[in-house]
Design a protein around this nucleic acid. Structure first.
Length: 577
RNA sequence: GCGCUCUUAGCUCAGCUGGAUAGAGCAUCGGUUUUCUAAACCGCAGGUCGGAGGUUCGAAUCCUCCAGAGCGCGCCA
């Protein structure tokens, strides 16, 4: 139950009726009327701006309109204790105690489904995320997008949408060739004691390549490693397999499991690229032409030539984009176009791509091509996760591919833990660069916001433990009837904001709102808890059986929200800490 | 040069589908454990929301311009 939606509907109904009764003018397209959370200093539960919106069409002051509406709203409703008008023209509503009792009963009986947005239509989502090159294990830089995509999926699933999580494996092209050559040289190093060519900047220097080489030797005793060209395709596929094994292991340790891995090589080999490009040709989106040298490139290095181009400028891109390289093989973009055509063919309502900040420049061309193929403007939504700035011992720490000095996902999990990693990465808007202070998080792990929220849940569990119950047990709400203090009302109001938080987070694809909300809820609970120190009547376990039972129900509602929130984040809620 | 993102307290950030006196955490300083978990709480202090215009009854939030920071601008992936 979203009480803000509930009251918006009620108020709109009142307004429309008043219009019918010729009491009030209502414009044709009624827009901008909201029911909001009032600032805490006002002694009320919800507030609305109706009067201010309707002031102009009625040629009255907002206060006058409010005066007119107040009695109409109250007449219609037995749950309102007090309704008042505040300065510019807000109408503030305070509910009766019984309203909150009914609200709480509903929170409890909805269990983990409290907050699910019931009014939206179910959709089929395809979300592509991570899609890191299969040339080695995942590092910290991959983490943020991975977690963002995963929690976004959970959030959509929570709202009963269908979600398919995909990883696009870029196992085609030059990078992969260099990777597979690196494995080859490591194999030669092991078998023939030939030194690995460390000066070759194209090759991958990391030690994990040695492990991959060892595994390939072990499992392919009959393979002859004398000539790279001869075994190139076999070795490439073996190397990619090994590296995918590592990546899947990393993802699993982060709590992430994709539904599908789609191979770029497969897309190319199935002629999907030609198919898709022909489709685009038919609609005049592809032509032979030249493109100018990019600004960053020294123009002397650039050779202008005729090549196959996609007309992304038709959709607002800076320039048209190349589909074929000089050797006529497909560009990365071309096969990605085919992959997106493949996605479109599978009939999803919404496609989401999670990209790293360094790929933000790619968005225009890929959304253009999706629009060109599907004819739909917003079928594909791209979400960028900004950089993670690593800080070590108080100094920025740059990872270097050449030196092979990476902080891998495994390092991170080992030092900080999966849950803390997820929570910290999610605690900030993905639009903002994130400071990840490795040393600080590790040393001061107790100051971590994750523990703050978990501790709240653990405290509630401990109350249940102390009365010989379990936090997960069914709880009886039949006789529940509680008289709330102001502190308890504050918590209830916060709980009532949970469905709103879910709604905004999923409609704007901003999962960081969840940890932020959970932190606030936990904060209010911790305050409340500490009141029991000075004032025995504010403790949960009290001699009065009825009050103690009711308080148990009350705190159970807090733990319910924490638990379902943490479930969406895929983070543990321990009962003891 | 062009594009995208950001600029809010000393630091790190919420708040941005327009609403009332702009909020947290950290850091500083001071206080709270015979009591359901002190991984907690309470208090003090800290702000021309980068700047200038505009739209509006109302702007941190929307629009325009300017400045600064980051990322990108490939026939790499």
């Amino acid at each position: 139950m979203n009480i803000f939606d509930l009251y918006l509907e009620k108020i709109l109904k009142v307004v429309k009726q008043a219009n019918k009764d010729k009491l009030i003018e209502v414009p044709e397209n009624l827009k901008g009327i909201n029911v909001d959370i009032p600032p805490p200093q006002f002694n009320c539960d919800i507030s609305t701006n109706v009067a201010m919106v309707l002031a102009k069409p009625n040629k009255k002051s907002p206060i006058d309109v409010a005066n007119q509406l107040v009695s109409l709203i109250k007449n219609d409703d037995t749950e309102i204790e007090d309704i008042s008008i505040a300065k510019p023209g807000f109408i503030n509503i305070k509910f009766k105690n019984s309203f909150w009792n009914n609200f709480l009963k509903e929170v409890i009986s909805s269990g983990n489904n409290f907050g699910v947005n019931k009014k939206i239509t179910k959709k089929k989502f395809l979300i592509e995320f991570v899609s890191a090159n299969p040339t080695g294990p995942l590092h910290v830089g991959h983490c943020r997008g991975a977690i963002l995509g995963d929690v976004l999926s959970n959030l959509l699933l929570f709202n009963n949408h269908t979600v398919s999580k995909e990883y696009y494996v870029n196992d085609y092209g030059n990078q992969i060739l260099h990777f597979s050559k690196s494995v080859y040289f490591r194999i030669r190093e092991i078998l023939k004691k030939e030194a690995f060519p460390k000066d070759n900047a194209d090759l991958y220097p990391g030690d994990y390549i040695i492990d991959i080489a060892k595994n390939i030797i072990k499992n392919n005793k009959d393979l002859n490693f004398d000539n790279f060209e001869k075994i190139s395709s076999k070795l490439t596929s073996l190397s990619v397999q090994e590296s995918l094994k590592l990546i899947k292991f990393n993802l699993k340790n982060l709590g992430i499991v994709h539904d599908k891995f789609i191979s770029e090589t497969d897309i190319v080999n199935n002629n999907e690229v030609e198919k898709t490009i022909n489709k685009l040709k038919k609609n005049n989106f592809v032509y032979e032409g030249k493109i100018k040298a990019p600004e960053s490139e020294k123009s002397s290095k650039w050779t202008e030539r005729n090549q196959l181009l996609f007309k992304s400028t038709d959709f607002g891109d800076d320039k048209d984009r190349a589909l074929q390289k000089a050797d006529k093989s497909w560009t990365y973009f071309a096969s990605d176009v085919a992959y997106h055509n493949n996605k479109i063919d599978r009939k999803y309502d919404v496609l989401i791509n999670i990209l790293g900040a360094d790929h933000a420049g790619y968005i225009k061309r890929i959304t253009s091509v999706v629009e060109a193929i599907s004819g739909k403007k917003n079928l594909l939504i791209c979400k960028v996760s900004q950089l993670v700035k690593l800080i070590k011992d108080g100094k920025p720490f740059k990872m270097s591919k050449r030196k092979g000095d990476y902080i891998t996902v495994e390092d991170l999990i080992e030092e900080v833990g999966k849950d803390a990693t997820r929570f910290i990465m999610l605690n900030r808007s993905s639009d903002v660069e994130l400071d990840f202070d490795f040393t600080k998080v590790k040393e001061k792990s107790r100051d971590n916001p994750l523990y703050y929220v978990q501790y709240c849940y653990a405290r509630i569990s401990s109350v249940f433990r102390n009365v010989g119950k379990k936090i997960d047990d069914e709880i009886n709400i039949k006789d529940y009837n509680f008289n709330y203090t102001n502190e308890e009302l504050k918590i209830l109001k916060k709980i009532s904001e949970w469905p709103l938080c879910i709604e905004i987070a999923s409609s704007k694809l901003e999962p960081h709102r969840l940890p932020v909300y959970l932190y606030e809820l936990a904060s209010e609970f911790h305050s409340y808890w500490n009141m029991g120190k000075d004032d025995e009547s504010k403790r949960f376990i009290t001699p009065d059986k009825k009050i103690a039972d009711d308080k148990l129900v009350f705190i159970k509602s807090v733990s319910n929200v924490i638990k379902s929130g943490m479930k969406i984040l895929n983070v543990e809620t321990p009962e003891k800490m």
